[in-house]
Write a protein that binds this DNA or RNA. Structure first.
Lengths: 222, 222
DNA sequence: GAACTAACCTAGTGGAGACTAGGAAACTAC
DNA sequence: GTAGTTTCCTAGTCTCCACTAGGTTAGTTC
């Protein structure tokens, strides 16, 4: 699937519009992942696509448009991973593990997609806002699945909503952090990564669910 | 302490070299935090410092030099937080909580420092390498403190070293993720953030330490 | 093979931004 | 006040890069 850096001497081939668009999208994902939004140049994206810069503009209106398009595609993919793996009749722990495993499998197969989504938050405010917006869609899609599991907590309480948001943030931080770490150590088997995620995240959540929270921190308002 | 966006009409004041350097450093931290390395322009940093661009170059050799200098200063500050708060005779749980609290207190007081350190990883490879290098120093400074606590694990085992690295990554991900989330919701009291960190991170680690790992994940090779 | 279409290129524009040379203005010492 | 020093500015240079106008060539249809 990977375009790779074609060694220059490759014969130029004429592709259909759809095929070329795919090639450009894949190359752009790579470059955005490696350099971030600002650091990525259309010229490099074009070069890795085996094409010159104007061709990129035949398929995407602007650099922003290209970026947004990739962002939406890849985030939608990850949402699908949750939607497919999380719901079900099995015990929560198994479903969480299954979802984690599928999630890590996705980033294992699409390393540049993961890096692009998780690494770049910077650049001009417009891009940051776009990133936040698309990420919020994912959050809105996935969090309800998890909220149902934490039924013990009182969902009407507004302080609980904050707490839930924080748990989401913890989940996101752990998964993304592990994914980035793992992407630089491909020799580690996926099971080991999933196990660490389970051991830190799930066991903690499970305890909280059972009311065994860390006591000194629970004081309501000091 | 904050420079803020001086409303243009301010009278220009002549400062000592050291004082001006401080002002520029503070302004640069803000701008790097908001826009990332590439998105930050020397011109904007200069403007927020109440000065024109060439003055920046009287104090820092280049944009890279300025960035590196800030990176080192702020990471060193955070390392100090751990060094001061973590060691001690108290039970581990209390020391962890105390450290978390102090850590979040630091990012509460220095929001731009936090954002600059945790948000930007992109741009040209040189900058990314610089970031990784300075972050590794912090890791090297802090991880030994934590490793001592997990004495139950066999430190000679190389698989354990990987696991330790992953736990570090989880810790980093959770703290940084929560810090970024919190920085956009200043009304949340610090205790609540610390409590969530403890409930997810510490309780999980504690269980692992007691050998109560999540079992289905431990299968060696499926 | 001629006519048509769609993919692709050459060559360029305009703007942004890092960085500099050299001079003006303020503060200090006497 | 005058001379010397230090802070700061004006006015540029140069490079990089997003984006475009208009032409060229490769496939397709008849």
């Amino acid at each position: 699937m990977s375009t790779g850096s074609t060694p220059e001497a490759t014969k130029r081939k004429r592709l259909s519009a759809a095929a070329r668009r795919e090639v450009i999208a894949a190359a752009a994902t790579e470059v955005f992942a490696e350099r971030g939004y600002h650091g990525a140049s259309i010229e490099e994206i074009a070069r890795r696509s085996g094409v010159t810069p104007p061709v990129v503009y035949d398929h995407f209106a602007s650099k922003q448009d290209l970026y947004r398009s990739l962002l939406e595609t890849h985030f939608a993919d990850l949402r699908e991973v949750w939607r497919i793996n999380f719901p079900g009749p099995d015990p929560a722990g198994e479903r969480v593990e299954r979802s984690f495993d599928a999630w890590f499998a996705y980033v294992e197969e699409h390393p540049f997609a993961g890096r692009m989504l998780f690494r770049d938050t910077t650049g001009d405010p417009e891009i940051a806002a776009m990133h936040a917006e698309v990420a919020a869609e994912s959050r809105a899609g996935v969090m309800p699945l998890a909220a149902a599991e934490l039924g013990v907590l009182n969902l009407a309480d507004s302080a609980t909503v904050d707490t839930l948001s924080m748990f989401w943030e913890v989940l996101r931080g752990v998964l993304q952090g592990l994914a980035m770490w793992w992407s630089e150590r491909p020799d580690i088997p996926r099971e080991q990564v999933v196990a660490v995620a389970m051991n830190t995240l799930w066991i903690g959540l499970e305890r909280v669910q059972q009311g065994e929270a860390w006591s000194p921190g629970v004081r309501p308002e000091t």
